[in-house]
């Protein structure tokens, strides 16, 4: 009996196609994670569960250094970017109108669409032109720039939904503009700020292209280290580090998403 097709999910093969789509998206990741727990070096033959590779990377001081570098860069860049993004969002939404306000709003977001390689080369050229050599500082400065729009988006979205009359109520009840910011605006904005900070954090931790351009010798971050290891061939250690990086990313993004949803 022919089924009546009322909506897209009634189309023949819809279920199969959906499975195929998700397999396409996630099969490589699943394989990476599964083989990070493989007992032998093989990346194709499963020979039993083991945490060997995790133990190995835990004992590797170079990996630890790279991880610490990544974390230092991410935390510093996130802190600076979040403060700037919060100030920018407040100025754009609550500030007085000024000439070119719309354009400014767009300019804050453009780093999101500028091809990363272009930003990377431009940053490299600038840094070498002015002779900037601050070790991890170079990477932090470069990361702040692209972290700002990521932090800005959720903060701006939160501010968009916030009723301005709540802040007026604080002013009406004898709070100065600064007291209003501290006691009402920032506490209400907090979920957006945290969410923005987490997005910035994850963007910084994951960044490769810009980091590779501006990193000085010795200032190796985790993605750079993984890339370096790959040149010596695929190894289960890479699977293990990547799995950890993946887990951290998923956790942070989930947290950010939950915070954005909360009212």
């Amino acid at each position: 009996m022919a089924r009546t097709i009322r909506k897209v999910t009634d189309l023949p093969g819809f279920r199969g196609f959906t499975w195929l789509f998700f397999a396409y998206l996630y099969a490589p990741l699943v394989l990476l994670v599964v083989f990070s727990f493989n007992a032998t070096r093989s990346g194709t033959v499963w020979s039993g569960f083991s945490l060997t590779w995790y133990a190995k990377i835990a004992a590797d001081s170079q990996i630890q250094r790279a991880a610490l570098n990544s974390l230092t860069v991410a935390v510093c860049a996130t802190a600076i970017a979040t403060v700037v993004a919060t100030a920018a969002a407040l100025a754009m939404k609550r500030g007085v109108p000024f000439f070119g306000k719309k354009v400014t709003g767009g300019l804050i977001m453009t780093p999101l669409v500028v091809p990363e390689i272009v930003t990377a080369v431009a940053t490299l050229l600038l840094f070498s032109a002015i002779g900037l050599s601050l070790g991890l500082g170079n990477i932090i400065l470069a990361h702040v720039a692209f972290c700002i729009p990521f932090a800005y988006l959720p903060i701006r979205a939160r501010l968009e939904r916030m009723d301005e009359s709540i802040e007026l109520a604080a002013r009406d009840l004898y709070a100065t503009p600064w007291q209003t910011l501290r006691t009402v605006t920032l506490p209400l904005l907090a979920p957006g700020i945290v969410s923005g900070a987490l997005l910035a954090l994850i963007t910084s931790i994951d960044d490769f292209i810009i980091t590779m351009m501006v990193a000085e010798p010795g200032a190796t971050t985790l993605p750079l280290y993984i890339y370096g290891m790959l040149r010596l061939g695929v190894s289960p250690e890479i699977n293990a580090i990547s799995t950890i990086l993946l887990a951290v990313s998923v956790m942070v993004v989930t947290l950010s998403h939950l915070l954005t949803r909360r009212r």
């Binding site: 709540i166 109520a169 009406d172």
Partner: peptide
């Protein structure tokens, strides 16, 4: 001078 706002505008936190 104090105000009672149309949608109350209480501090939700």
């Amino acid at each position: 001078i104090n105000t009672v706002f149309q949608h109350y505008s209480l501090f939700p936190h």
